[in-house]
Design a protein around this nucleic acid. Structure first.
Length: 502
RNA sequence: GCAGCUGUAGCUCAGUUGGUUAGAGCGCCGGAUUGUGGAUCCGGAGGUCGGAGGUUCGAGACCCCCCAGCUGUACCA
């Protein structure tokens, strides 16, 4: 069984881009998920659980001109040689679900789902190849009311997680506005698709690269600090400035700060004048604005921001992004900006891939893993709420039945408890309890048994007292922080001791 | 993919201009304490110096190639 051949032993190491989740994180992560779920349930969305794996064709991820799946998605072939893939988001599987079950589902269909998704990409700081999303979608409604609702729900989620007003904002824009500007710029045809993608990605980078960087990417290209050159869209100056104008629509003259959504919308009118598609986009944004503002969501919570485009191709109308605004320090004391923790938008053509008929849909995806690490850095995760179990030591192997009885009595009172199930001596059992973080141990050896008592030792208090001890004699002579009580009072005494420690 | 940086004990790292037998702290195991974790003291295990070649009397260190990791950047449906 065990290999003694050192050469052939596998190295115990985590696969690149993946991570283990320990008990503490697991608990607070679950708490966070319950909070989000509570908000979504309140809005009337229904839970749906779906598999991690779908047919690759259902995800739509084959490499162009090849019968092999796209790099970037984890894939393998089934017995029958069909390609299967791990899902890379929750939206594509939802589209499959709706297309497959359309006849049974109410329209509009409002659902939410949470789970792991996988991307076979280069991992980076805070970027993993497996991460969790929490997704909510309304399928079958073309109304901007559905978009507005999703935005409000995102804002409510932030609030429910303890993030204060002003520390987050949901930004909204509309792809149709960009389409309008593309139209004006003569970038509309299918042969311009690549250029349009470059333009969208460039705008998406505006918070990182600034105006100049984006302008370079729209023109010839940009060389970054590492000396790497990124080819640009090759637009002329006039086209570039028209596109950058969109992102500036939030400004109201120089030096103005809080710009209302109304002003932004008015500015946008000028940018897309002459493009019906652009004007349609503004009309939709206007409706969204009216709905959210009459529901009490002002632009400090839901803000129209034309610089939001989202990199994904499939969005057809409104797009959203939820951003955390505060800064904090990481473990090394460096400032961290959280940025986007979720996003979404309208994707009217996704279901049509399967059914041939266009089904309007809109949705929002929270990046759970990212949101979690943000909350953790902000100290909003409530670690350590669960206290470790009381450990009952096995002093006499013949009496494990008695020890189990202790443990069961404690459990009946709702106290986490366990009997030591290892095979080592008392010293090792104490170490075990210590490493475990147990609040106290229960000891009943021959001495206690003879007196009809149990000894309780408060580990935290003992540790505290021991740090003042200087000599070995002093240390050994004391039995710190322990008391003996009648066996019948075990549960009562443990309860008291636990209560004191809080 | 491109670029830069880094690979020495389980972890974090030191290792002089190339010079005997490669070190420290933490962790781990054992003892002081055969019924006591946490303080203190003593002892111990643990290393193909990322891999292969080369220069040299001599390489952990210098050169070349490869591999891995990190960071940035690109891609991210």
């Amino acid at each position: 069984m065990a290999s003694n051949d050192k050469q052939n032993r596998p190295k115990a190491r985590l696969a690149k881009g993946f991570r283990d989740v320990d008990a503490n994180e697991m608990r607070s992560l679950k708490r966070m998920l319950r909070t989000i779920e509570g908000v979504y349930e309140m809005y009337g969305f229904e839970p749906v659980e779906q598999p991690f794996i779908e047919y690759t064709e259902a995800l739509g991820k084959f490499l162009p001109d090849q019968d092999r799946p796209n790099e970037g998605v984890f894939s393998f072939q089934d017995d029958d040689e069909q390609w299967l893939s791990l899902r890379y988001d929750l939206t594509a599987p939802l589209a499959r679900y709706v297309a497959e079950n359309q006849q049974f589902l109410p329209t509009p269909f409002r659902s939410y789902r949470q789970g792991w998704v996988f991307r076979n990409e280069k991992p980076g700081p805070g970027r993993y190849r497996q991460f969790m999303q929490f997704d909510a979608d309304t399928v079958g409604s073309a109304s901007p009311a559905a978009d507005a609702e999703v935005c409000m729900m995102a804002a409510d989620t932030m609030k429910a997680l303890g993030i204060e007003l002003g520390q987050y904002v949901v930004r909204v824009s509309n792809r149709k506005i960009l389409d309008g500007v593309m139209e004006i710029n003569g970038l509309l045809g299918p042969e311009m698709a690549t250029k349009r993608m470059i333009v969208m990605r460039a705008i998406d980078k505006i918070d990182r690269l600034g105006f100049d960087g984006v302008a370079q990417l729209l023109g010839e290209g940009r060389k970054d600090d590492s000396g790497d050159f990124t080819r640009g869209a090759g637009l002329n100056d006039r086209q570039i400035s028209r596109i950058l104008d969109i992102t500036g629509s939030k400004q109201q003259g120089t030096g103005s700060k809080g710009v209302t959504n109304v002003v932004t919308l008015a500015n946008l009118e000028d940018v897309v004048r002459g493009s019906p598609r652009g004007e349609e986009g503004i009309a939709e944004l206007t409706q969204i604005h009216e709905i959210v503002s009459s529901a009490g969501y002002e632009n400090n919570r839901i803000e129209i921001d034309p610089s939001i485009v989202r990199g994904l191709e499939y969005y057809t109308g409104p797009v959203f992004e939820c951003e955390l605004l505060m800064e904090t320090k990481d473990e090394d004391g460096r400032p961290v900006r959280f940025g986007s923790v979720g996003g979404g938008g309208r994707y009217d053509d996704l279901v049509a891939r399967f059914t041939g008929q266009s089904v309007p849909a809109t949705g929002f995806s929270m990046g759970v893993s990212r949101l979690y690490s943000a909350l953790k850095l902000l100290g909003k995760t409530e670690d350590k709420e669960t206290i470790a179990p009381v450990v009952v030591l096995v002093m006499d192997k013949e009496r494990q039945g008695d020890y189990q009885k202790f443990v069961q009595d404690l459990r009946k009172e709702g106290i986490r408890a366990e009997m030591y199930v290892g095979t080592s001596g008392m010293k090792a059992q104490m170490k075990y309890a210590d490493k475990r973080g147990s609040p106290l141990v229960v000891i009943q050896g021959g001495d206690e048994k003879a007196r009809g008592e149990v000894t309780l030792k408060d580990l935290a208090l003992g540790s505290q007292l021991a740090s003042g001890v200087e000599s070995r004699e002093e240390y050994a002579s004391q039995r710190l922080a322990q008391v003996s009580v009648p066996e019948a009072d075990l549960v009562k005494a443990v309860t008291e001791m636990l209560g004191r420690g809080r």
